[in-house]
Design a protein around this nucleic acid. Structure first.
Length: 849
RNA sequence: GCGGGCGUGGCGGAACUGGCAGACGCACCAGAUUUAGGUUCUGGCGCCGCAAGGCUUGGGAGUUCGAGUCUCCCCGCCCGCACCA
């Protein structure tokens, strides 16, 4: 008898795979490719259970597809630029590069111990000059292709990290990383012109069939396309005109005022001579745009004194500066139609402006239309609107847009919520933006033969702000064009730039070109991408933009989308623990007594279990994957991650569950260890043999279908079922032994993607010389999968009264007779006449009395 | 407010196109063998009931021979977006 020792066999097989280069991928046009990718980690120092779950799912897919004969690319790397490295430098005096590379080394070791089938020869770290030099080259190409813009604009400033943030990185008015309330500043910044692709990014979402609908909706909302019209109002006594955007040009005759954002140029102009207006603007700025402020704030306005002339009826409309109008959206100005917009209505009531209904709901005659507390935003017919009267809303929109265009007072216009992607960051640990500022020549790209622009190593972190700004020499260069003294750009890229193209670099990670077109053409798109929902907008949208920009600049061939399939996994949760003082405890500080009570592991004081929450340091409910591997082995951790909870849902890690998995893996070990030797005597195929073989082949079919459909928890359940079926069957005679061994071998082959080390070991112990990882996936025999008998339900008036086992395909009449002959059915029918019998072959008979 | 998702035993969850609700696992209970190593094996386990039987998928109505699944209303929870004109 032998024992299952995870640590021994896991190391053993990892070394074998490594020596054989089993997971090295090479492009091979004669074989179908499969590119499976998990979102690469930030090298924070240690992997966490969320990584373990994500990467286990990806590894199951990779190993399964490899067994199915695909040429699989499954790479791993490091999203290595970012603030934590600088914080480590500030707090501990360790250089960001040193900190990062040490973390990478440790995390790589941890991932290796999990037995993930990565092609480590393709490993990349985005902080390496051999990676970011290509990013700089791409940027220069984007610059030439007019995909980049440099302009002054209002930006989100994170006062803790001392840097600008993209709109996507501001969550509820706070920095996504620091949590600090974001301020508004006006700065000159580099932008990637993602809005050029707004329509395409939106339209192509519909074709991403293997993406979660949730993610597609989130991107759709983020891009926020709205169709409407620009209206230009003449301003009384002025030559310039006021441009407003509206999605309801049909309601123009109901306009009773115009309103502009407090940041609007007209306000700035008027505030110069109007102290009250200036004070009003100041107050609005102070209120800010945080969630609570927005929710509770009244609609406030201040008359600028300007008068807009209605383009059709010539009325003079007051122009207000208003706190609910956003400079960032549309034209930064609106016309207010109080009868048909709730905000405008509140505003009009407050300032005593007229309210004229111009849309009548269906069935209401024009004179009866009254506006109460609610604006009417539904469909209807136009009234009080001159040439629009009688038209339905959609027609009126079209008619008004046409009329505006014909008189030159406006035009159809589509606007987006999506903004251009501001990529300048005032930080050290990022990719330098490869341009030079010359007082004579302006912005000059760094010549390509001078790439990469390397980060200087000798920087200090003893003062706030960007260390590159303080560096004594780095930024002082000569202008490549006029040779005059010039200044290097000291901003670095948003770290989301690196992760926007790493999937393409993996196709040719050591190539001298940023992306080798042939390699990319073979491997891309990523067939299956796996990661967290938190990247639903940021990373996934940026990558979709980059793919288009790279196609346009010739780095990639025609490639519509980077990720053909996307899977977003749930989080890993754990119970929280509180001692009697209400202090949080770590799981390892808590012990469970025999009676089930929780106590402090050292003091024995009572402990209560709190909510089950996402693992986080602040909740102290974390378990370290390294401890889990040491205590249980990688295979147990991998199995646990896939069992019970569907992969897209949250999963609670429990010690009891891990124990349960270990017990099961031990049981598998024993089954193989104690399996009777194959006798060679092939005996008659009796019922027992057939039952084993059917169970085996049905498991192959069902398990395979479950893996294909990402139903890992169901797949795992099938394996338990097969084990339950096989248990004890080895004693059924020589013929059964052969079938039993077939069942065991199948089991071992099926578990291989989940717990590959144990599977490889058991496969060898079953007498195979060929590595399991090089053995094709088992095929189910259709003859054994097909059912011969089926169990059908018999209902009387919809209530189950009996089940019958009948030959598959039994004719309706025969099934009906069998059902009516059943004593339990007869009892339920009693002496009532049978009115009707519904027979669904192979499923059910329902007797209606 | 808008958009999306979800609600099934003590728990995680199964249930393909409407057709045996509760697969499988955890926890628990009973028994057996006993284990140096996190034992192993057998059986039970939605609720009520001694039983026959009845009830049961958040609540209510509807469609249907038949509803966890479809439709409508309500309740609760989660996620995303939000003065977006």
């Amino acid at each position: 008898m032998t024992r299952y020792d995870a640590s021994e066999i896991e190391g053993k097989w990892q070394r074998v795979w490594e020596q054989r280069g089993t997971f090295r991928a090479t492009a091979d046009r004669s074989r179908p490719k499969y590119y499976v990718l998990e979102m690469f980690p930030y090298p924070s120092g240690k992997i966490h259970m969320g990584h373990v779950r994500n990467y286990t799912q990806g590894d199951v897919v990779a190993r399964y597809k490899r067994a199915r004969g695909f040429n699989v690319l499954h790479p791993m790397g490091w999203d290595a630029f970012g603030m934590p490295a600088e914080n480590a430098a500030i707090e501990r005096g360790v250089h960001p590069a040193r900190w990062t590379y040490d973390n990478i080394a440790n995390m790589r070791r941890q991932l290796e111990r999990m037995g993930f089938s990565y092609d480590w020869s393709r490993e990349i770290a985005t902080c390496h000059p051999e990676y970011y030099r290509h990013e700089q080259a791409m940027f220069l190409d984007f610059l030439e292709a007019d995909l980049v813009d440099r302009r002054e604009s209002w930006v989100n400033w994170d006062p803790v990290d001392n840097t600008v943030l993209a709109n996507e990185q501001v969550i509820d008015g706070k920095g996504w990383r620091s949590g600090a309330a974001v301020e508004r500043r006006k700065l000159t910044q580099w932008f990637f012109r993602i809005t050029l692709f707004a329509d395409e990014l939106l339209d192509e979402l519909a074709r991403l069939e293997r993406w979660p609908e949730r993610v597609r909706h989130m991107q759709e909302n983020w891009i926020g396309r709205s169709e409407g019209a620009l209206v230009r109002f003449a301003l009384l006594g002025r030559a310039d005109r006021l441009e407003v955007f509206t999605t309801r040009p049909d309601t123009l005759f109901g306009a009773s005022f115009c309103a502009v954002a407090i940041d609007h140029p007209l306000v700035a102009e008027r505030a110069g001579s109007d102290a009250v207006l200036a004070r009003f603007v100041e107050e609005c700025r102070r209120l800010g745009t945080t969630e609570e402020a927005v929710e509770t704030a009244e609609k406030l306005g201040h008359d600028t004194g300007l008068r807009a002339i209605h383009p059709f009826d010539g009325r003079e409309l007051p122009v207000y500066a208003a706190n609910f109008v956003l400079m960032e959206y549309g034209a930064g100005a609106i016309f207010g139609c109080p009868a048909h917009d709730q905000r405008d209505l509140e505003f009009a009531r407050k300032y005593g402006l007229s309210v004229l209904p111009v849309v009548a709901p269906a069935g209401v005659a024009a004179p009866e239309v009254v506006v109460g507390a609610e604006a009417f935003t539904g469909d209807g017919r136009l009234i009080n609107s001159d040439f629009l009267d009688g038209l339905a809303v959609p027609e009126a929109k079209r008619a008004m847009a046409q009329r505006l265009e014909s008189i030159g007072a406006g035009e159809r216009k589509v606007t987006y919520r999506l903004r251009d992607w501001g990529v300048s960051r005032q930080r050290y640990w990022g990719c330098p933006i490869p341009v030079i500022h010359c007082s004579g020549c302006g912005v000059v790209p760094v010549p390509r033969d001078q790439l990469p622009v390397r980060l200087p190593d000798d920087v200090t972190f003893d003062a706030p702000g960007n260390p590159l700004d303080r560096h004594p020499t780095w930024q002082h260069v000569v202008c490549p064009r006029c040779r005059a003294p010039a200044r290097r750009e000291t901003d670095t890229f948003d770290t989301f730039v690196e992760s926007s193209w790493y999937f393409a670099r993996f196709c040719s990670p050591r190539a001298s070109a940023p992306i080798e077109r042939d390699a990319a053409a073979y491997w891309l798109p990523v067939d299956q991408y796996l990661g967290g929902i938190e990247h639903a907008i940021l990373h996934l949208l940026y990558s979709r933009f980059f793919t288009r920009a790279l196609s346009r600049t010739g780095h990639l061939g025609a490639l519509a989308e980077p990720f053909a399939g996307l899977f977003t996994q749930g989080m890993v949760l754990h119970e929280t623990y509180l001692d009697s003082n209400g202090q949080l405890l770590f799981p390892e500080q808590v012990a469970r007594r025999d009676d089930g009570r929780l106590v402090h592991a050292t003091t024995g004081a009572p402990v209560t279990a709190g909510a089950v929450e996402k693992m986080s340091k602040s909740k102290r409910n974390v378990v370290d994957p390294e401890d889990i591997i040491a205590a249980f082995g990688a295979d147990t951790a991998r199995w646990f991650m896939l069992s019970d909870s569907p992969p897209e849902r949250d999963l609670e890690w429990t010690a009891a569950g891990a124990d349960g998995v270990r017990r099961f893996l031990n049981r598998l070990w024993r089954l193989v260890d104690e399996a009777p030797a194959a006798s060679g005597a092939a005996g008659a195929a009796n019922d027992g043999v057939l039952a084993i073989r059917r169970a085996t082949h049905r498991t192959i079919a069902a398990f395979t279908a479950d893996l294909e459909g990402f139903h890992f928890n169901r797949a795992v359940a099938r394996l338990y079922e097969l084990v339950n079926t096989l248990t004890g069957m080895e004693s059924e005679g020589p013929a059964a032994i052969a079938a039993y061994r077939e069942g065991l071998e199948t089991l071992v082959r099926l578990i291989a993607p989940i717990c590959p080390h144990l599977a490889e070991e058991l496969w060898q112990r079953l007498g195979h010389d060929r590595l399991l990882v090089e053995t094709p996936w088992p095929e189910a025999d259709p003859a054994l999968v097909a059912e011969t008998d089926v169990t059908i339900a018999v209902q009387v008036n919809g209530k189950l009264r009996a089940t019958l086992t009948v030959p598959k395909g039994l004719a309706k009449a025969a099934a009906e007779k069998a059902a009516l002959d059943d004593p339990a059915v007869a009892r339920a029918i009693g002496d009532k006449p049978v009115r009707r019998v519904i027979v669904v072959p192979d499923r059910i008979v329902n007797v209606v009395v």
